[in-house]
């Protein structure tokens, strides 16, 4: 995972696409959440977040 993050950061630097970072971070967070909670249990989680 560390390798991936390093590489992805390098990719954003080379492409000068830093603005993609917050979107990707959010997506990865939610993605991980969905994977960990197996989809159905995610609803209350999300609800309490907001």
């Amino acid at each position: 995972m560390v390798d991936f993050l390093k590489e992805f950061w390098m990719f954003l630097r080379v492409r000068k696409k830093y603005w993609l970072l917050p979107i990707i971070v959010m997506m990865l967070l939610f993605g991980t959440l969905i994977v960990l909670t197996q989809g159905t249990a995610v609803a209350p989680f999300v609800y309490t977040l907001f």
């Binding site: 390798d3 991936f4 590489e7 997506m27 990865l28 993605g31 994977v35």
Partner: peptide
């Protein structure tokens, strides 16, 4: 992508 394709190198 989040599950698999983004980690294609791995």
């Amino acid at each position: 992508w989040i599950k698999e394709k983004l980690f294609q190198k791995k």
